[in-house]
Structures are given as structure tokens and as C-alpha cells.
């Protein structure tokens, strides 16, 4: 994916809106609260290499990329998509 243009900021998203956005992007949750794709496979965070739990999910700008939220994965994301 190319660099993200016109990025403004990271904002908090409450669980209700997060669920709506995830659904809109084609995701759902399994019985244990992990995010699954439209084939019902758990989504794996590209940085932590672990399944993404709903409570830990960040949804990243202008894409369908979702990751587990921690400083290292956010830093990796920023490096890959926002830094020049």
C-alpha cells in the first residue's frame, strides 16, 4: 500500500462506532471477540503476527488495515504509511 496522504490525526473510537466501521469494511467478530474477515478467518496483525481482538484493534486511515494496538505496532504502522 502507498503512503497515506492528508493524514490529520489519530482519534479515539468508542466500541459502538468501531464495530460499525469494522462491519462496513467487511469484518465481523467470532465468538471470542476476535476480528474475522468475510471468510470467517481471524485477521492477523501484520506487526504483532497475532490475531486482532476487538478490544485491541486500531483501524488505520484510508485503508482496511487493522492492527493490534501497542506502541511498537503503531510506530511500525507510522513508519510504513505516514513517514516520508
Amino acid at each position: 500500500m502507498a503512503k497515506v496522504d492528508n493524514f490529520k490525526e489519530f482519534v479515539y473510537i468508542d466500541p459502538q462506532k468501531k464495530m460499525i466501521l469494522l462491519k462496513a469494511l467487511g469484518y465481523d467478530l467470532d465468538a471470542r471477540g476476535f476480528v474475522v474477515d468475510n471468510t470467517r478467518r481471524r485477521v492477523i496483525c501484520k506487526y504483532t503476527r497475532r490475531p486482532v481482538h476487538f478490544n485491541e484493534a486500531s483501524i488505520l486511515p484510508g485503508s482496511t488495515v487493522i492492527i493490534n494496538t501497542n506502541p511498537v505496532s503503531l510506530s511500525s504502522y507510522i513508519e510504513e504509511y505516514l513517514e516520508n
Binding site: F7, K8, E9, F10, V11, I59, L60
Partner: peptide, 20 residues
């Protein structure tokens, strides 16, 4: 023209982005 990222730790994410 204004793109957002949604996260649960927005202050830390924005600080990391400022550091970058």
C-alpha cells in the same frame, strides 16, 4: 483532505506521529 486513524490509545499514537 483530512484523514483519521481510529485507535484506543490516541495520545500515544499522535505522540509517535509527532516524533516521526
Amino acid at each position: 483532505t483530512s484523514r483519521y486513524g481510529f485507535t484506543i490509545t490516541q495520545d500515544e499514537a499522535n505522540t509517535l506521529n509527532d516524533i516521526a
